[in-house]
Design a protein around this nucleic acid. Structure first.
Lengths: 210, 210
DNA sequence: GTCGTAATTGACGAAGCTATCAGTATTCCG
DNA sequence: CGGAATACTGATAGCTTCGTCAATTACGAC
């Protein structure tokens, strides 16, 4: 997910410019998480970023443009997190469980990220677009390994994504019991056709390098 | 879900008033379905309803007020549809499958309703609030009958609702195969712990009084 | 037919938001 | 050091939206 990051020999001017841009994106991110895209005003973004109003238009053409930047940032951040958490695993079912647990744990630890995910999903399909490819890969590994019993792959991914998003919302709203990540992971595996007992066992395995 | 509807002896004046109100709600419903709550302007609603701008404030205090009316209408409409479709059934698993199929089929037949559901869910929790009680009742029947294997009821309902909403969105976006309602119903039953074969069988049963 | 009541209407003032732009401050480079 | 380049700034013009209100219209009672 991460690019090789070719960089560094930048003048002070360039650095300040990027810094301003980063402040704007961070401010937009936090405000969108709190209020949703539509409710956020551009002057709120510049105030939060502690930057002159006019600066906004030095970096972005419109609100849509900065939203796109936020979406991209969130997508790559989550993608990296999933990669890091699952790269050491062999069992396809465990990969799926850990991927879901990662998302939910991160949303719980960083509600701003969680709300962003929820609030951006409707308008920008973040889950399908950004996470879909990972999910599809993991799904097919599980099918190939004979662990999942799946009839319609696309429909399964949709249900999986919807259930995940529901779980994230529930966590953010505090409507959950203990360790919602494990609970949800077990449900996801059950959805994929694992027997209840096996789903529980896989979902409960300790996270790698935790 | 439906109230006994005590009514009829109304003068023409009352009827016209209710008619205006109904036109406003219908217009709001269609516009919200198309653009989401935030994007809808009050003058758009009155234009669509073919009513003077000022009339809006004879019936509703604010946009929030009319949105609440729309939410209530949608909730009772769906509730009635589910009741009608499942009241003749004995098998708890079949009840759950038919309930989900009903929602998806209705969303497919009436995209306005589907989009409303999706667009209102974020801001108003329609699925949890309006459909949750039905789902909980059916879930507990299935558990009592020993057909579902459920660990955490609340988490299961959340996953079920999220998956349903995802399926509705997919249908509206055309990203589906044949008979998405049956496909999704089978997934829902699998999520509830039914073995894959059994889930398929129950999901495929013909709808009652179809 | 006349009058009182209540709903409807659209124009208007107030408030908010966007995008621009002319001016200022900072950095780069010869 | 000095001039060019570039990012930053906030006031402002123009537009959109909201909620109110005085005038108008439709209804129903007598």
């Amino acid at each position: 997910m991460s690019t090789p990051t070719d960089e560094q020999p930048l003048g002070r001017r360039e650095r300040r410019k990027l810094e301003t841009r980063a402040k704007l994106v961070a401010a937009a991110r936090s405000l969108i998480a709190g209020q949703g895209v539509d409710a956020v005003r551009i002057n709120e973004i510049t105030d939060e970023a502690d930057v002159g109003f006019g600066s906004f238009y030095n970096h972005f053409e419109s609100k849509e443009a900065i939203v796109a930047a936020v979406v991209e940032a969130v997508a790559s951040e989550l993608g990296d997190a999933i990669d890091a958490a699952t790269s050491d695993l062999d069992d396809a079912a465990e990969v799926m469980a850990v991927a879901h647990r990662t998302i939910i744990d991160r949303a719980a630890a960083e509600p701003t990220l969680g709300w962003l995910l929820v609030r951006l999903e409707l308008s920008h399909d973040v889950v399908s677009t950004a996470l879909g490819p990972y999910a599809l890969r993991d799904l097919q590994r599980g099918i190939a390994a004979g662990r999942f019993h799946v009839d319609d792959q696309a429909a399964t991914l949709i249900a999986l994504g919807g259930a995940l998003l529901g779980a994230v919302r529930a966590v953010l709203l505090g409507r959950v019991g203990d360790d919602p990540a494990i609970t949800h992971a077990a449900l996801a595996l059950q959805l994929l056709g694992l027997p209840a007992g096996e789903a529980q066992e896989v979902a409960r395995r300790p996270l790698p390098r935790g």
